[in-house]
Design a protein around this nucleic acid. Structure first.
Length: 463
RNA sequence: UGCUCGGUAGCUCAGUGGCAGAGCAGGUGACUGUUAAUCACUUGGUCGGUGGUUCGAAUCCGCCCCGGGGAGCCA
């Protein structure tokens, strides 16, 4: 049997071919009296392959009504230079097989679907041009993540998805349990006895692999994780999902500046890689999703990211003279409107904000000499906001213990984490980059639910 | 979770107290190396659900469900 050629390969052929086999799904069909044009797509590229089905084909009259939008086809024929405008190559079919029919109820049409409607048919939307493009870019972006770190000598670490610790001391967790919810074992005082649960303790889906990544950074120097993460927050926004992917590099012998350097280099690398390898798909986003996309990506690549300390950021916001919905003073969290102002109006490019007040940041961030701020850093990008959050970690045992006490955390639960500071402790730093938020940034897609194959959000786990 | 805007044909939407509509998709026919093809005709409705106001409700009011936007939490 003839080995199949992808649409992508057929379209970039160097020469005609006497016989090729192409498999795919019908995007549309246009009929002439003597022949039909069939647009075939197999997901390998944005562009379709035009198939010419001549009326003299065996079974033509019976075949044509089955060749409807959505039907799966196997086409054997000659790859020839197109006689028409608009495409270089086309296939003149010698044999057409309808592998799977699609009747008139097939939901995808040739034009104009809303993102909301496509979200409801998440099992079919990868067949739409836009979503094919999104998920090809997603695949390439994931590859580029690994390439970036592997090229730089980072070791890929698989941190656990099931955890007994709430890594960040914040955020709500999904409980993992095999206890009977209707009749759980109880302790003498009436509480659920998790000692009898599967792991003999309460366990959850991880919200971050950071603490475990620190373990490996303090053994192998430079490591990264790349995997799914779970947050049971009741967040209903265009940039939050209950299940998302995150990349978390962690580096020993590295301080806050080295951390910011890596984050900025990483973001730029990903943009450059996708621009180089997904040009057709990005052009589609530039045309239909975000007219200014290419210009903005080019701009981000050309310029160094701005860096402002939290204290400077507060001064910038106060000096803006804007009427803020939430006025800020030193010590407050930056609101979304402030972050947007910094990235979109004041700097007009990604901006890294660092050295936040210790009161608004987690226990593991390193205390600065001013005793008031910690080495937190957030990368804010126009249109999305926070895309990276990280810090230099507190490597001094006594200071870390004091921080934990201040945050009301039990030292006993973090014995292994404290051990890293007892034995060969070193300055180290890392961050988390939201994979989907990065994908939103490079594609211009406005909603995180549209860059995840099957999005999980509060109240929605269909498919 | 609170704020706000929506839910009308398969899809996108108009209709805002008085006969349920358009474009696209689907069907039929014509025409054409077409390419979001074109032209003519045509099928298609629990107006999100429920209760109320009214002679009369898609339209006004209450409650519920679902979706969007922005907010908080964060990546």
């Amino acid at each position: 049997m003839l080995k199949a050629t992808s649409v992508k390969d057929a379209l970039r052929a160097a020469a005609p071919a006497p016989e090729i086999l192409v498999n795919g799904w019908v995007r549309t069909r246009r009929d002439s009296k003597a022949f039909s044009f069939i647009e075939l797509n197999d997901g390998s590229s944005l562009k379709n392959l035009q198939v010419i089905a001549d009326a003299t084909l065996p079974g033509y009259a019976e075949l044509m009504p089955q060749i409807t939008t959505g039907a799966a086809l196997a086409v054997t024929g000659e790859l020839v230079a197109s006689k028409g405008q608009g495409q270089t190559w086309e296939v003149k079919a010698s044999e057409l097989t309808v592998v799977g029919k699609a009747d008139a109820t097939y939901p995808l049409q040739k034009k104009g679907h809303s993102m909301e409607f496509l979200r409801e048919i998440a099992h079919l939307r990868p067949r739409a041009n836009l979503f094919g493009a999104v998920f090809r870019v997603r695949s390439r972006l994931a590859y580029a993540v690994h390439q970036f770190y592997q090229d730089r000598g980072f070791v890929y670490v698989h941190t656990p998805l099931i955890t007994a610790s709430d890594c960040e001391g914040a955020g709500e967790l999904f409980r993992v349990s095999t206890l009977d919810p209707l009749n759980p074992p109880k302790t003498e005082d009436g509480a659920v006895d998790y000692g009898q649960d599967f792991f003999a303790r309460p366990t959850y889906l991880t919200v971050s692999g950071q603490l475990e990544a620190e373990v490996f950074a303090c053994a192998m120097g430079k490591v990264y994780t790349f995997g799914p993460t779970f947050r049971a927050e009741n967040s209903n926004t265009s940039r939050h999902a209950s299940e998302f992917w995150m990349i978390e590099p962690e580096m020993a012998f590295t301080d806050l500046v080295g951390n910011m350097d890596l984050a900025e280099e990483f973001v730029k690398y990903l943009i450059a890689d996708v621009r180089e390898h997904c040009a057709d798909d990005l052009a589609l986003f530039g045309k239909f999703v975000d007219k200014g996309l290419d210009e903005r990506l080019a701009f981000v690549l050309e310029r160094p990211f701005q860096r402002v300390s939290y204290t400077e950021a507060i001064a910038i916001i106060e000096a803006s003279g804007k009427a803020w919905e939430h006025p800020v003073k030193w010590g407050d969290n930056l609101q979304s409107e402030h972050e947007r102002y910094l990235a979109e109006e004041h700097c007009k490019c990604p901006v890294t904000v660092y050295n936040y007040p210790k009161e608004i940041k987690p226990f593991y961030m390193r205390l600065n000499d001013d005793q008031k701020t910690v080495t937190a850093m957030d990368v804010l990008v126009p249109g999305i906001g926070e895309i990276v959050g990280g810090s230099q970690r507190e490597e001094r045992l006594d200071v870390l213990e004091a921080n934990m006490e201040r945050h009301g955390l039990s030292k006993a639960d973090y014995g292994w984490y404290l051990d890293l500071r007892r034995y060969g402790s070193v300055p180290h730093a890392g961050f988390g980059l939201g994979f989907e938020r990065m994908l939103m940034f490079v594609t211009g897609m406005a909603n995180i639910r549209d860059v995840i194959p099957f999005a999980r959000t509060p109240g929605n786990a269909a498919f």
